[in-house]
């Protein structure tokens, strides 16, 4: 299988750290799946889109649910359709191939060009799911017993796998992956990320919002800390709502955009209440630049 030696270096709307770029390129060069873990909202899923657009390749997304089976990614034999067709007699049911539908992995194998395949949230599936994919990902081919066909990959797809660590992944699977943990971006990187999405944002607003955001994240006892995607929404809400930057750290408008759980909401409100004075005088503290 000829591999193209292009390398990934982020896209205009996706800021990837140097480390992450390295990991992606290692995975591509070695032809191994890239396993991405990280806090929700750190852009795990976006990464695959970014790789695809950066390397100018097509992206296939395989969303994993708790009911997804490994075999579904290869092919599905639509027995029910065949049964129906046989009852009405208006289709040729003798050719099983009509009822074999390739799954996402299968599609990636038969594609003319190299494909970026995103296996999203692999940990949602059953514990055994990753193991069931090992063989196919390793040798890049599989057999369809119903028709006796063997599907072989024309190009080894670039496989990106994301996980939220809901379940532990099997060791045998991990051994074959390149692993990268996306750390939560620091304020500097976050500012860059926001600028990519909202280029016309006022500088003051951005600074105030970031300060408020990282303060909320630092409140202990939150069940779900607000993440990048929530911050992006919030910043947008602030901009649309025409909130003046000064009000942000005083009033925390649209807090519901950042905090999705009642309990968290109350926790933060309580903290705000008890620290009310400090927040109001926060203007004197040197801000993030």
């Amino acid at each position: 299988m000829p591999e193209q030696s292009s390398s990934f270096n982020g896209t205009r709307n996706y800021i990837a750290s140097q480390e992450l770029q390295n990991s992606v390129n290692v995975a591509i060069a070695l032809g191994r799946p890239l396993l991405i873990k990280g806090e929700p909202g750190t852009g795990k899923t976006m990464l695959a889109e970014s790789i695809a657009s950066n390397l100018d390749k097509e992206l296939l997304i395989w969303n994993i649910k708790s009911s997804t089976k490994a075999g579904d990614g290869l092919y599905i034999y639509d027995t029910i359709q065949r049964l129906y067709d046989s009852q009405f007699g208006d289709h040729d049911v003798s050719d099983i191939r009509h009822y074999i539908k390739l799954g996402k992995l299968g599609q990636a194998f038969v594609s003319e060009n190299q494909i970026v395949l995103l296996i999203d949230e692999i940990d949602k599936a059953d514990l055994e799911f990753p193991n069931d994919l090992l063989w196919e990902l390793d040798i890049m081919s599989f057999n369809i017993p119903e028709t006796g066909e063997t599907i072989e990959a024309r190009h080894r797809p670039i496989v990106v796998i994301t996980s939220n660590a809901e379940k532990e992944l099997p060791d045998a699977f991990l051994r074959r992956c390149i692993f990268h943990y996306i750390a939560f971006p620091d304020a500097e990187m976050m500012a860059e990320i926001i600028r990519v999405h909202h280029p016309n944002l006022e500088k003051n607003l951005l600074e105030e919002a970031l300060e408020a955001f990282y303060w909320i994240r630092s409140v202990s006892g939150l069940q779900k800390k607000p993440s990048t995607s929530e911050l992006l929404d919030w910043v947008q809400a602030l901009a649309i709502g025409g909130i003046s930057p000064k009000k942000i750290s005083d009033e925390f408008p649209f807090l519901g955009v950042l905090l999705k759980k009642d309990q968290d909401f109350n926790t933060v409100l309580q903290r705000l209440h008890s620290q009310g004075k400090q927040i109001k005088t926060a203007a004197g503290i040197p801000r993030f630049r």
């Binding site: 480390e19 390295n22 990991s23 290692v26 995975a27 070695l30 692993f179």
Partner: peptide, 29 residues
């Protein structure tokens, strides 16, 4: 796998690159 990556020149003779390369390949959590 790491040896394979090294023979492909992935570490570009820098210890920093090697640090990240080896971590991505060897450490899975």
């Amino acid at each position: 796998m790491l040896m394979e990556a090294l023979s492909l020149g992935m570490a570009s003779s820098s210890l920093t690159a090697f640090y990240h390369l080896a971590r991505a390949v060897l450490v899975k959590s």
